[in-house]
Simulated assay, not measured.
Amino acid sequence: MRKRLMAGALAATMFVATACGTGGAGGADGDLREVTVNIVPFSPNAVLFLGMEKGMFAERGIEVNIQRAASPVPVVASLVAGQADFGFVTTPVLINANREGTPVQCVSPIDGQVSPDRDASALVASADSGVQDLADLAGRTVAVVQLASINLIGAKKMIEDAGATGTEFVAMPFPQMPQALADGRVDAAVITSPYVEQAVDAGAVTLANPSSDLLPNSTIYCYAATAQALERDPELARDFQAAMTEAIEYARDNEPETLDTLVEHLDLSPEEARAQVIPSNWVPEINVESIGTIQDLMAEQGAIDSTVEPGDLVWQPGATG
């Protein structure tokens, strides 16, 4: 069953990719290494875009090409297939990949760790659903980006803690969620920027912010690579990690400039871009302990029947090669 899912995910990755390329030495000019990063488009990608635009990758001999995927599972497939060098994964996907024999490791945070004070994602209910609080989601339908996602885990815990039962979760790409809410195809959704603003502008009601409410200062997503690729070229991983660290630290003090990158890279208007939120505490390190906390929550919910060592899921300079 899992092999069929991964095959389907790989096909999805190939379908949604908007750019292609492989890593390794030698860019188009012979000086830069072309590196493909597979992302799930959302506002925190602004830090990566900033690093590209400010030359932080180029200074380290890297030229970044962007691929786009609908969710983290096809990103893992693209990494395994060698179609991308680094890719966006959420912590649950990272855990499941390693449990199932696909060694993938976090190399860098996306934007830091989860801010306890602000969030770019929210659990919202449609304007016409009649849902006013988490308890009202009993027997209702909630969209999440995928059924093995950090969004599902957080929303499920908060809904169950509110006493609601019988909630159905369905997988749906973020860009489709605002219209699905407006059409009444789902009652609620865990949705992220820049799409959450569209839903709220259309009347959606914010019920909770699962990531910041449950997992402050945690690592809930990262840019990852396969262990094989990291062993083959640890220098590339060190340079990518260093560029992202510089970008995160620069973005901390220059958030408006960081958000402006979304105009070109996510096709937002300048006004929409400046309205986005990067939900970061700006700590450019992976929180290993939080990966264990998320894994424990997955086990409590029956999502997994075995565990992995959290520290093995994080790459460190000097750990390979």
Rank of each mutant, 00 (worst) to 15 (best):
residue 200 V to T: 07
residue 214 L to F: 01
residue 196 V to P: 08
residue 172 M to P: 02
residue 274 R to S: 14
residue 162 A to H: 13
residue 229 A to F: 12
residue 234 P to M: 02
residue 226 T to F: 06
residue 237 A to N: 00
residue 191 I to D: 03
residue 271 E to H: 00
residue 162 A to S: 15
residue 224 A to N: 07
residue 270 P to N: 05
residue 202 A to I: 06
residue 262 L to M: 10
residue 174 F to V: 08
residue 179 Q to Y: 10
residue 210 P to A: 01
residue 249 E to R: 13
residue 254 N to F: 02
residue 271 E to N: 02
residue 173 P to G: 08
residue 234 P to W: 07
residue 174 F to K: 08
residue 235 E to W: 05
residue 209 N to S: 10
residue 208 A to L: 14
residue 254 N to A: 11
residue 278 I to A: 02
residue 215 L to V: 04
residue 250 Y to F: 14
residue 209 N to F: 15
residue 251 A to L: 07
residue 273 A to D: 09
residue 201 D to H: 13
residue 275 A to E: 14
residue 234 P to E: 07
residue 161 D to L: 02
residue 177 M to T: 08
residue 253 D to T: 13
residue 267 D to W: 10
residue 251 A to M: 05
residue 257 E to I: 00
residue 269 S to C: 02
residue 235 E to F: 06
residue 239 D to E: 06
residue 247 A to M: 09
residue 189 A to W: 09
residue 264 E to G: 14
residue 185 R to G: 04
residue 258 T to R: 01
residue 176 Q to L: 13
residue 232 R to E: 04
residue 176 Q to Y: 10
residue 232 R to Q: 12
residue 239 D to K: 15
residue 271 E to K: 13
residue 193 S to V: 09
residue 258 T to A: 11
residue 220 I to A: 05
residue 249 E to F: 07
residue 163 G to S: 10
residue 274 R to E: 15
residue 229 A to W: 03
residue 278 I to M: 01
residue 171 A to N: 11
residue 215 L to C: 04
residue 256 P to N: 15
residue 173 P to S: 07
residue 241 Q to P: 00
residue 222 C to S: 15
residue 255 E to D: 06
residue 242 A to L: 09
residue 268 L to A: 05
residue 174 F to A: 11
residue 269 S to N: 04
residue 239 D to Y: 00
residue 176 Q to E: 15
residue 210 P to L: 12
residue 269 S to L: 10
residue 216 P to R: 12
residue 262 L to I: 11
residue 262 L to F: 11
residue 188 A to D: 04
residue 208 A to Y: 09
residue 164 A to C: 09
residue 185 R to V: 13
residue 203 G to W: 09
residue 222 C to L: 10
residue 184 G to D: 12
residue 210 P to H: 04
residue 225 A to M: 11
residue 264 E to P: 00
residue 166 G to E: 07
residue 250 Y to E: 03
residue 228 Q to H: 03
residue 208 A to N: 12
residue 225 A to T: 10
residue 223 Y to I: 10
residue 227 A to Y: 07
